[in-house]
Each structure stands twice: as structure tokens, then as C-alpha cells.
């Protein structure tokens, strides 16, 4: 778990941390690939929500370079298959996500990211 789709949706939310708080940096990760159900409609519907550069870079960091640097205008089957793999099949099971701005470290244990904030980080 912590699939890249999730990594693409989570930003640092500590008090006052509002710029450069996304994407979180992946650190000391243990990665596993697990097959997931392919659903073209879901992928097409989700495309507009994706921060593309963040996704491409995160995939690259974990060794997957199947995605084009720019989001293509024409969505074909080949592209959807690659997108499916990157978004849903690459799991970060251990490690941490670190805020590039404030440095808050969100640990990942047994696939569950701990996004709780400390007392001094909430408004």
C-alpha cells in the first residue's frame, strides 16, 4: 500500500506549510508490485486530478519510466496500461514521505502512512 495514486493526492498539511508542500519525498522505501484490477473508465476519469510531473518523477524514483514526461493529448490503450501500473500496482510498504518544505516526516509502516500532525503543527 501507499500506491502512487495516493502519493499523488497527499500534501504536507502542517500549520503554515502551504507552499512547496507537494509532492512529498519518498525516503528509504520498500517497494512491492502487486497486480490490480484494470478499469479504463476509472483511469480516464482520474486523469484530470493527477499532478502529472509529480507522478512521473515518483515513478522514475521507484524505477518505472513508462510514462511520458508530458501528459499525452491522445489517450490510447498502451498509455492507460502504463498509467494503471504506475498508479495502482506499485506499493510502498515501508519507508517515509518527507515534506520538501518543512521537513515533516510521515512514516509508512506495514503500508499505512501516518499522516497525523504533532501538537505544534496544528493551527
Amino acid at each position: 500500500m501507499v500506491r502512487l495514486i495516493t502519493h499523488n493526492l497527499l500534501a504536507c498539511h502542517a500549520k503554515g506549510c502551504t507552499t512547496n508542500n507537494f509532492p512529498l519525498k519518498l525516503q528509504d522505501v520498500v517497494v512491492e508490485v502487486r497486480e490490480a484490477e484494470f478499469n479504463a473508465d476509472f483511469l480516464r476519469g482520474f486523469l484530470p486530478r493527477i499532478e502529472w510531473t509529480a507522478l512521473v518523477n515518483a515513478a522514475k524514483e521507484l524505477g518505472d519510466t513508462s510514462l511520458p514526461l508530458e501528459m499525452p493529448e491522445m489517450v490510447d490503450d498502451e498509455f492507460l496500461k502504463n498509467l494503471h501500473h504506475v498508479l495502482l500496482e506499485i506499493h510502498v510498504d515501508e519507508g517515509a514521505m518527507v515534506c520538501p518544505n518543512c521537513g515533516h516526516k510521515y512514516p509508512i509502516m506495514n503500508g499505512i502512512p501516518n499522516m497525523l500532525l504533532a501538537e505544534h503543527e496544528i493551527g
Binding site: 495514486i5 499523488n8 493526492l9 495502482l88 501516518n114 499522516m115 497525523l116
Partner: peptide, 14 residues
């Protein structure tokens, strides 16, 4: 898809 630990009132959804 994923399970996360956080408080909805201080949530990290982008």
C-alpha cells in the same frame, strides 16, 4: 486503495 492514519479535521488531501 489505501488506508491512512490522520484526523479528518487536519487532513492531507491535496
Amino acid at each position: 486503495i489505501d488506508l491512512c492514519t490522520f484526523d479528518l479535521t487536519k487532513n492531507p488531501w491535496r
